[in-house]
C-alpha cells in the first residue's frame, strides 16, 4: 500500500462533511441567488429569463437607482463612523485594559463587552427610550451640565438620524475590537516591553511604537470584519426605524433596501427576483471590498512569530 492511496480515503473522510455542509448551505444558495437575479417575475408568479435586465433596472431606472445609491451612500457613512469611532475606541480600551497596574480589569472588560451580548431589539428599545424627547433621560442629563439647548430629537431628524443609529451600533459592538485587540496585546512577549522600560520609555510610547505595530494584523482583521458586518447590517435600523428607514430614507442601508425589495412593504408586493438582484449587488460590494483589502493590506502586514 503506497502512502498516497492511503491518504486519499482519509482526506475524503475528513473533508467531505465540511465540504458538503458548506456546499449545500452556502455555495448553493449563493449561486441560486445569482441565477434568480437574471429572471423576471410576472403577475402569476412565473419566472422568465431576462439576463442582466434587473441589474440595468437597478442601476439606471430612477425609481430603483435613487433608493439604491442612497442606501449605498448611507451604508458607506455607517461604515465610516464605525471605522472612525468603534475601532479606535476599541484599540484605546484594549490598551488601557492591558496597562500593567490596572485594578478591576475583569470588571471593566465584562462591562464593556456586555452590550455586545444583548439582543439588537433590546439595544434599540433602550436607546429609543434614553433618547426619547418625551420620557428620555438624555435631555435632563444635558440640562444638568448646562447643555439643555443642545438636545434634539436626534433619531427623528434627517441630518442626525443616521449618525445617531451608527453610534448606537458602535456602542453595542465596541466590545468586539476591544476583546480581539486585547487578546493580541496579551500575546506580545514581555521581554519587548520590559526592554523598552529599561530604556526609560513611558507607557504611551511603548504602546504607540512597540505594541501597535505588533497588533497591526489584528487591527486589519477587525477592519475587514467591520466592513463585512456593516455592509450586511440590517437589524439595528429595522429595530429602531422599521423597514421604511425614515425619516425620508435617511437611515436606509442596503440591508433594509433589500428587505423591502424582497419581502415587500405594506402595499408594495415583494419581488424575489429583484430582491436577488439587490442581494447579488450587496455580495459584489462586499467581495470587491474584501479583495481590495487582501490585495493591498494583507500582503503588507507582517506577522511576527514569537
Amino acid at each position: 500500500m503506497t502512502p498516497k492511496s492511503a491518504t486519499l480515503p482519509l482526506l475524503t473522510f475528513f473533508i467531505a462533511p465540511a465540504f458538503l455542509i458548506y456546499a449545500v448551505f452556502s455555495v448553493y444558495p449563493l449561486i441560486s441567488t445569482m441565477v434568480l437575479s437574471t429572471y423576471d417575475t410576472d403577475a402569476a408568479g412565473g419566472h422568465s429569463f431576462i439576463g442582466f435586465g434587473n441589474f440595468t433596472t437597478l442601476l439606471t431606472d430612477d425609481a430603483w437607482s435613487g433608493p439604491f445609491w442612497n442606501a449605498l451612500t448611507n451604508n458607506a457613512v455607517f461604515f465610516a463612523i464605525h471605522m472612525a469611532v468603534q475601532n479606535p475606541v476599541g484599540i484605546v480600551l484594549a490598551g488601557l485594559l492591558s496597562l500593567p497596574r490596572l485594578r478591576g480589569r475583569h470588571t471593566y472588560r465584562t462591562l464593556i463587552f456586555l452590550p455586545t451580548m444583548l439582543s439588537v431589539v433590546i439595544v434599540g428599545f433602550i436607546w429609543q427610550l434614553i433618547l426619547s424627547p418625551l420620557w428620555g433621560v438624555s435631555e435632563g442629563l444635558l440640562s444638568a451640565v448646562g447643555l439643555g439647548d443642545w438636545f434634539a430629537p436626534w433619531l427623528g431628524q434627517e441630518e442626525t438620524a443616521l449618525i445617531t443609529l451608527s453610534l448606537l451600533s458602535v456602542w453595542q459592538f465596541v466590545g468586539i475590537p476591544m476583546i480581539l485587540i486585547y487578546a493580541a496585546l496579551l500575546n506580545i512577549p514581555e521581554d519587548l516591553t520590559e526592554a523598552a522600560q529599561v530604556d526609560g520609555i513611558g507607557h504611551f510610547r511603548i504602546f504607540w511604537h512597540i505594541k501597535l505595530p505588533l497588533i497591526a494584523p489584528t487591527v486589519a482583521l477587525v477592519s475587514i470584519l467591520t466592513y463585512v458586518g456593516n455592509f450586511n447590517a440590517f437589524d439595528i435600523v429595522y429595530a429602531v426605524k422599521g423597514a421604511i428607514a425614515g425619516p425620508n430614507f435617511a437611515t436606509d442601508i442596503l440591508g433594509t433596501f433589500f428587505y423591502r425589495t424582497f419581502f415587500g412593504f405594506q402595499l408594495q408586493q415583494g419581488s424575489p427576483t429583484m430582491g436577488a438582484t439587490v442581494a447579488t449587488v450587496m455580495f459584489a460590494v462586499i467581495l470587491i471590498g474584501v479583495m481590495i483589502y487582501l490585495a493591498l493590506m494583507q500582503r503588507r502586514v507582517q506577522r511576527h512569530a514569537f
Partner: peptide
C-alpha cells in the same frame, strides 16, 4: 404636536 414629535413613535 408634542415637543420632539419627530422622534415620537
Amino acid at each position: 404636536l408634542g415637543r420632539g414629535f419627530k422622534a415620537q413613535s
